[in-house]
């Protein structure tokens, strides 16, 4: 018999619907092993029938599943094979009264609900913890920022603070800097936020003009953006007549050599 004749005969359909005779069952299995086309067509018919069966599926009572799993979980059940004739009233074999079935179903339902609830809660908790950690990190950063700001403001708002504007010179006409000179202590602070970024290898240096001579007030940090906006404490001069900022090599100089950017008188 050719594969195509087998397919056209309808024997595969009988096999898949379970109406084939014992003899035909053996034949179909032989053909399917012999001809791939037959096996393929048979699989198609089987899938058709599966879909047909599913279209009319009827959910059994939940207790059926409970009973089945109770039985397969019980090892003893494996040893004693099921004998059809021995069971006259299968419903009575287990002998569980109806209310116990409902109780079991209810208990399982409650257990699963609580399990699901816990899983959801656990996940939620996890997410919440992550969010909290994130927020705490952000808060720490903000707190640091705030501290800096507070210390900056304390300099600006200090009642002894004398602000000195340093204005741009030829090297950088738009540059500006501010000195805060504390009259009572002689401390000197600089706000370099309006100085252009120092080119690499160079750094700004503050000078105080004391008795007509420049005295170094220290290096001004502008390379790191975070530091640039900070009001920085510089060296104390005693009494300076004026302040100036020059661009020097990174290590600084004992006397100004680079171009002067800003200057202002006290």
């Amino acid at each position: 018999m050719e594969a195509n004749d087998i397919i056209l005969s309808g024997i595969l359909e009988l096999y898949a619907t379970g109406s084939a005779s014992a003899q035909e069952v053996v034949l179909v299995q032989k053909y399917a092993a012999q001809y791939p086309e037959v096996a393929e067509e048979l699989a198609k018919i089987e899938i058709d029938m599966e879909r047909y069966a599913n279209a009319y599926a009827v959910q059994p009572d939940a207790s059926v599943k409970v009973k089945i799993f109770a039985r397969i979980n019980n090892e003893a059940d494996k040893v004693i094979p099921f004998v059809v004739g021995n069971i006259k009233k299968p419903a009575k074999v287990i002998g569980i009264p109806a209310y116990w079935k409902y109780a079991a179903v209810a208990a399982i339902f409650l257990f699963l609900s609580s399990l699901a609830f816990n899983v959801v809660q656990y996940n939620n908790n996890d997410v919440a913890t992550q969010k909290l950690q994130q927020t705490q990190k952000e808060l720490a950063v903000l707190k640091d920022d705030n501290k800096v700001m507070e210390s900056d403001m304390s300099v600006v708002q200090n009642k002894y603070s004398v602000p000195v504007s340093l204005h741009g010179l030829d090297a950088a006409p738009n540059a500006e800097a501010k000195i805060f000179y504390l009259k009572n202590t002689g401390e000197v602070y600089i706000d370099p936020s309006n100085l252009p970024d120092a080119p690499s290898g160079k750094q700004y240096q503050l000078w105080g003009i004391v008795d007509g001579k420049p005295v170094s007030g220290g290096m001004i940090l502008t390379s790191k953006r975070g530091d640039k906006y900070r009001i920085q404490k510089m060296k104390t001069f005693g009494h300076a007549e004026a302040f100036a900022v020059t661009l020097e090599s990174e290590v600084g100089n004992t006397s100004p050599k680079g171009p002067m950017f800003v200057m202002g008188k006290l």
């Binding site: 059926v64 299968p90 419903a91």
Partner: peptide, 16 residues
């Protein structure tokens, strides 16, 4: 209910 009893037997048999 008989169908469900048989279904139960069938699945135990499928497992075993």
């Amino acid at each position: 209910s008989l169908a469900e009893d048989i279904l139960q037997e069938a699945f135990v048999k499928i497992w075993n």
